[in-house]
């Protein structure tokens, strides 16, 4: 749809990134084949193995390489990673994507959940501090 044909609501929505997702395809060496760059720009790293410069991926590379199309997607919630100068909280999902007989990729889906988890972190922080305080007063008392 052309921009001029958008409804007022669609024009308003177009100012935002409603998905908050980034999609990346890696080959079996971890080389970045394609990235939509919605959350962070990986163009500079195209052709390089993400296993060599992202420690998280390095630590699970054996599992990623062995994934099959029939396997359930691997889900890693609440990853607190200083990532390309962004200090956000992400959910990562990985699955094998085989669009045809010749091509096979590790599909990596990144969801930025920083805002949602910010509230959860505050609640958890208060809860944990209350538990520690209660335990200390019980022991001292």
């Amino acid at each position: 749809m052309k921009s001029s044909n958008l409804t007022y609501l669609q024009k308003f929505k177009s100012q935002f990134n409603p998905s908050g997702y980034q999609f990346v395809l890696l080959d079996n060496q971890g080389i970045i084949v394609e990235s939509c760059n919605t959350l962070f720009n990986l163009d500079f790293y195209q052709g390089l193995s993400a296993f060599t410069f992202i420690p998280f991926l390095e630590s699970i590379q054996e599992t990623l390489i062995e994934m099959n199309v029939t396997d359930k997607p691997l889900y890693f919630p609440r990853l607190d990673i200083p990532f390309f100068s962004h200090h956000h909280i992400y959910d990562f999902t990985f699955q094998r994507f085989r669009p045809n007989n010749e091509a096979s990729f590790i599909a990596w889906v990144v969801k930025d959940n920083t805002l949602q988890y910010h509230y959860l972190r505050q609640v958890q922080q208060e809860r944990n501090m209350a538990i520690v305080k209660s335990e200390r007063s019980r022991l001292n008392g």
């Binding site: 420690p55 630590s59 607190d80 990673i81 959860l120 958890q124 922080q125 944990n128």
Partner: peptide
């Protein structure tokens, strides 16, 4: 200062 960990933090 205590700062809770929400899920997992990765360092190398």
């Amino acid at each position: 200062e205590y700062l809770t960990t929400l899920g997992v933090r990765i360092d190398k």
